[in-house]
Design a protein around this nucleic acid. Structure first.
Length: 126
RNA sequence: UCAGAAGGCAGGAUAAUCGCGCUUUUCUUUAUUUAUAAAGAAUUGUGAGGAAAGUCCGGGCUUCACGAAGACACGAUGCCGGAUAACAUCCGGGUGGCGCGAGCCAACGGAAAGUGCAACAGAGAGUAAACCGCCCAAUUUAUUGGGUAAGGGUGAAAGGGUGCGGUAAGAGCGCACCGCAAGGCUGGUAACAGUUUUGGCAUGGUAAACCCCAUCGGAAGCAAGACCAAAUAGGAGUGGCGUAUAGGUGUGUUUUCCACCUGUCAUUCGGGUAGGUCGCUUGAGGCGUUUAGUAAUAAACGUCCCAGAUGAAUGAUUAUCCCCUUUUUUAGGGACAGAACCCGGCUUAUAUGCCUUCUGAAUAA
């Protein structure tokens, strides 16, 4: 498993409720103004991401779809090149996600990853 | 020009970079029987709505039930004719109401089958009733007995209305006109309309109160359902015999009959959760022309293929233009809102712009 494979690997999405629950229970999380990020290592299944946009947050389907698209766009730009492989990432939308400019979303994502990745690197060293 | 009425259309535009679903073609790699499957890359085409929404009706499609007779429910619809696969929809007409008008609105069958309901006021509220008044009679001159629904008063509503005659005073008591009811005739497919004869006023309202009448209605839904299939549990189908007792099933409930099952014997073999594939988009399809019809719509011909996802693609960022608000340099904003098996409707939300026809008023010719 080389670094080259990480970059070309296509990120897949979490599809089962069980996967989300596992990340929530076993993973670590960091909260930004745009969203909440939860991460958790998986069994060599590559990078996987999940999106959570509850109906309570946005009443209209149009708004929920818009939030998901913006987050997915940012994920596909950042995750494969910057984040660790063989981890599951779950993004939970917050009330401000829809009104934040796109650049702020990118910044918050890098910030969250940085905070969480730093912890993981310490584990790798030890 | 102003004020309105009816109907229809559009639902920001263009470009650049990056990206997603499905799809066309090609190439590479891997596996095996020269072809197919899987993965990756490039490439072609395409990718939300008028309401995609609410899930309120009607269908298609799918599975189950698709025995007989009887009784009792339940739900929906409700002027007439037509359109349609069907409808609670649509079109045309009738009746009633509103508006100067164009037009709009209508749960619009039955109250002489029955039951119920109506506060307060009022003498009396439904087989009418005598408080005041009017008239007659009697007498103790102020009351009693009787007649009377024309007048007053009460009320949402007082048992036909107006006028004339009539009378003690009155009264459909009689007559005329209007209304009402029943019958006839004429027009209309019909709802209904017109007209005429008779009656002599009976039958107040409420059925989105129960109800009655007529018509219609099997149930559940694509998480329907079909197939491939790790796991797990032991069963499932078919045929014969039996059918004594008892129980169960037969899709609103229930009764009777009837059938089947729970029993036993023989025989056959798969079973179906995770996951996957199909169902899944060529259809009561769109567009155009012609013909028939007042119209809804139908027919014929030509032409087009126009989302098919499944933790759910249809986007992100930037620039220019357009529109709106504004402090007119600039800044902010772009209605309602996102397909989930598919159609026909209904209902609700909807910034802004545009078009057609018609009505009323004012002015000018």
């Amino acid at each position: 498993m080389s670094d080259f494979q990480i970059n070309t690997h296509k990120i897949s999405s979490l599809k089962k409720r069980a996967g989300f629950l596992r990340v929530q229970k076993e993973g670590k999380k960091w909260i930004s103004k745009s969203f909440i990020l939860q991460i958790c290592p998986n069994d060599n299944e590559g990078q996987r991401f999940g999106l959570v946009v509850t109906k309570r947050l946005y009443k209209l389907a149009v708004d929920r779809n818009r939030v998901k698209r913006r987050l997915r766009e940012a994920i596909s730009e950042i995750l494969p090149s910057k984040a660790l492989n063989n981890y599951d990432y779950v993004f939970i939308a917050r009330r401000d996600t829809i009104s934040k400019p796109y650049k702020d979303l990118q910044k918050d994502m890098l910030w969250c990853l940085g905070k969480l990745e730093a912890i993981e690197r310490v584990d790798d060293i030890t």
